[in-house]
């Protein structure tokens, strides 16, 4: 009973503080992903400078629940909504927000006419950079293992670009195009898949490179290569996102050579600027706002 009272009191305290400030709801099913987390932290930091009340809602992988939470936020009459999810899947919620006159901004989401704008990194460019990096490092010849995830559109486009670039080198052969099981975070299953591929290709030098559409499979592949005692073969690994674990691996100057750092914090801040603009009545013309990225190699991984 005491605990119940305490909870009730804390709920009261939690809700009593925000009478006048602008209320913004940030809704995502992917808060467990480090990138989404960093982007939302960037948004929160910028929002707190602006004096807004931000409510971050994680639906833990449930996309329909995002629609439900958008509807709840409309009922609550928030001033703006930020989503980090594929807008095509939450269209019903976006339409309701539009009908209620509440602006919705995409944070690394996808483009949609119902969004004021989407703030993101250029996924095509990032995939092009890492796949060209591999093609150049292996001098345009050798077998490449790809780790992709086509179910999630922002990652799917990375795979498409890498396919095109590797396809343009006649002597590069894509040995396997693996979709790892991501329910464990992506590292463990990628490692298992890579171990199987290494076992099937025992000849030293038979695998030239591993291209991963994001960092977790790259880390899994690295563990598999090191575990199999084949780190000395010069297999080049690249990832995308440059998460802290990937940066540490790249800094060791081993097989994991490069990743692309998206500036998630800046993405969040840019989204906050879009929200601020919309709330003040400024017309938002650009539908997609790209935040610059940076290649991370052993030279700058520690920075």
């Amino acid at each position: 009973m005491k605990t119940l009272l305490k909870t009730a009191v804390s709920l009261f305290a939690f809700t009593a503080s925000s009478a006048l400030a602008e209320n913004v709801a940030v809704i995502t099913p992917y808060l467990a992903q480090p990138g989404t987390q960093m982007a939302i932290e960037g948004f929160e930091a910028s929002a707190s400078e602006k004096g807004w009340e931000v409510n971050v809602i994680d639906t833990a992988g449930d996309v329909a629940a995002v629609i439900s939470r958008i509807e709840d936020s409309i009922t609550q009459n928030v001033d703006a909504i930020v989503i980090a999810v594929d807008p095509a899947q939450v269209n019903v919620g976006l339409q309701s927000a539009k009908d209620a006159g509440i602006p919705v901004v995409g944070l690394d989401a996808g483009t949609d006419p119902l969004l004021v704008a989407n703030v993101t990194s250029n996924g095509y460019a990032m995939a092009a950079e890492t796949s060209v990096y591999i093609a150049n490092r292996i001098e345009g010849a050798g077998k490449v293992v790809m780790f992709v995830f086509d179910a999630f559109p922002p990652v799917q486009i990375r795979g498409v670009v890498a396919d095109a670039i590797f396809g343009n080198f006649p002597d590069i052969e894509v040995l396997d195009r693996v979709t790892p099981d991501v329910s464990d975070g992506g590292i463990a299953d990628s490692r298992a898949k890579m171990e199987a591929i290494l076992a099937a290709n025992p000849e030293p030098g038979s695998i030239a490179a591993v291209w991963a559409a994001w960092d977790q499979p790259a880390l899994g592949a690295l563990q598999a290569i090191e575990g199999a005692g084949r780190a000395g073969e010069g297999i080049v690994i690249t990832g995308i996102d440059a998460n802290p674990q990937a940066r540490d691996a790249i800094a060791l100057a081993g097989n994991f050579e490069a990743s692309i750092a998206q500036n998630f914090g800046a993405m969040g801040a840019a989204a906050a600027d879009v929200v601020a603009g919309v709330m003040s009545g400024t017309e938002q013309r650009a539908r997609v706002i790209y935040v610059p990225t940076k290649m991370v190699t052993a030279n700058n991984a520690g920075q």
Binding site: T7, F14, S18, N55, T59, S68, D72, S73, T75
Partner: peptide
Amino acid sequence: LDNGMTQLRVDSYVREIL
């Protein structure tokens, strides 16, 4: 619970625990 706590802006993880 989901609807009410969202409207009360209770942290989504606290909501899950509750």
